[in-house]
Amino acid sequence: MSTIFAILLLFVGSTTGLSLKPAATPLMDSGKALARSGELLIDMTRKLDLYGGGLSAAGAAIRTSGDSIAQAAASCRFKTGTELVLDELREAATCLKEASLKCKVATEEAQTDENEGLEQLLVNMIGPIAAAGQSLEEAGAGIMTRVPLKDVGSKLVESADYFQMIAASIDNIAQSTTAADPIPEGILSAQRMMFAAEKMKEAGNELQGNEKPKPTGKAWLKG
């Protein structure tokens, strides 16, 4: 009986020791920013006369992915929410993988329209979107198998790096339009994606136990 009790204590200890709460706030900010980036990407397709095609579908999938990340963040605050966190991260990953497939459809549409410039820019987005989804899926799997929190955090940081690549691609599309000026919705979409990356990296750093950079100058005066 004492052996069984010891095993139960070990199991409970490993479960309660997995605290995702430090990542909750930055992860929430990241999810909201990602969802907004997806919405703005859809808006950009209206200006490009591509609404209803693969790129707008990719934007919708990115928006849903962001919503799932925000839901995961909400569950991070509770010790009993671990299962919900990994479920939502997996859903976010699935949505990003779907977005990469829709982006591939968009490249085929651009090829049909003989728009080689847009086609290449879209090709550049496919890999990072799929890779970001893979990183989030591995983060969720890590939570399920109770790997050290620093390993989960490293996967979040990894996904943030891919978000930055996606942001650059969106910005390039917005800047390379044949119109006289860049597409504002595209610029904002890229900015929101970059902010999502920053906050996702912050969430990962929290789980890794990395210290936040100290404010410089008089930044510490800001409340």
Score class of each variant (00 low, 15 high):
85 V>T: 11
35 A>Q: 01
221 L>C: 07
72 A>P: 08
93 A>S: 14
114 E>Y: 07
130 A>T: 07
213 P>D: 12
67 D>Q: 12
204 G>Q: 08
144 M>K: 12
56 S>Y: 12
36 R>M: 00
14 S>Y: 04
202 E>Y: 03
45 T>Q: 07
133 G>M: 04
146 R>S: 09
67 D>C: 01
104 K>G: 14
6 A>R: 14
221 L>G: 01
167 A>T: 06
161 D>Y: 04
159 S>I: 00
19 S>Q: 15
91 E>Q: 13
13 G>I: 01
150 K>P: 00
15 T>E: 15
189 S>C: 02
86 L>Y: 10
172 N>F: 04
28 M>Y: 05
93 A>F: 02
1 M>E: 13
214 K>R: 10
186 G>Y: 00
200 M>G: 00
57 A>K: 14
94 T>K: 15
155 K>N: 09
86 L>S: 11
17 G>R: 08
88 E>Q: 15
133 G>W: 03
52 G>Q: 09
119 E>A: 15
63 R>Q: 10
149 L>N: 07
79 K>N: 14
8 L>I: 10
123 V>N: 11
57 A>E: 13
199 K>S: 04
165 M>I: 06
45 T>V: 05
160 A>H: 05
21 K>G: 01
100 S>P: 03
73 A>I: 04
77 R>Y: 10
77 R>L: 10
10 L>I: 06
4 I>E: 11
126 I>L: 02
93 A>T: 03
54 G>Q: 12
213 P>F: 11
145 T>P: 00
22 P>S: 08
154 S>T: 10
95 C>K: 13
136 L>N: 01
73 A>N: 06
149 L>D: 06
45 T>P: 05
159 S>G: 08
151 D>N: 13
27 L>T: 00
9 L>M: 10
154 S>H: 08
165 M>P: 02
31 G>P: 00
46 R>I: 05
98 E>W: 02
215 P>R: 12
145 T>W: 07
55 L>N: 12
154 S>N: 13
31 G>D: 02
212 K>A: 13
216 T>D: 14
212 K>P: 04
107 T>K: 14
113 D>W: 09
203 A>H: 06
14 S>K: 11
187 I>G: 00
127 G>F: 06
159 S>R: 01
46 R>E: 15
158 E>P: 02
87 D>P: 04
182 P>Y: 07
137 E>Q: 15
153 G>M: 05
73 A>H: 07
43 D>K: 15
109 E>C: 04
173 I>W: 04
19 S>E: 12
31 G>V: 03
204 G>T: 10
211 E>F: 08
13 G>Q: 09
82 T>E: 15
172 N>T: 13
35 A>L: 00
55 L>Y: 02
119 E>T: 11
156 L>D: 07
15 T>G: 05
83 E>Q: 14
3 T>G: 01
143 I>Y: 03
10 L>C: 09
38 G>D: 01
126 I>G: 02
61 A>F: 01
66 G>V: 01
191 Q>L: 01
161 D>E: 13
72 A>V: 09
138 E>W: 02
52 G>D: 11
86 L>C: 09
169 S>P: 00
59 G>Y: 04
180 A>H: 08
39 E>H: 11
13 G>R: 06
4 I>L: 10
176 S>W: 07
211 E>P: 03
3 T>W: 02
174 A>H: 07
86 L>F: 12
27 L>M: 12
139 A>T: 09
105 V>M: 07
187 I>L: 13
70 A>D: 04
126 I>P: 00
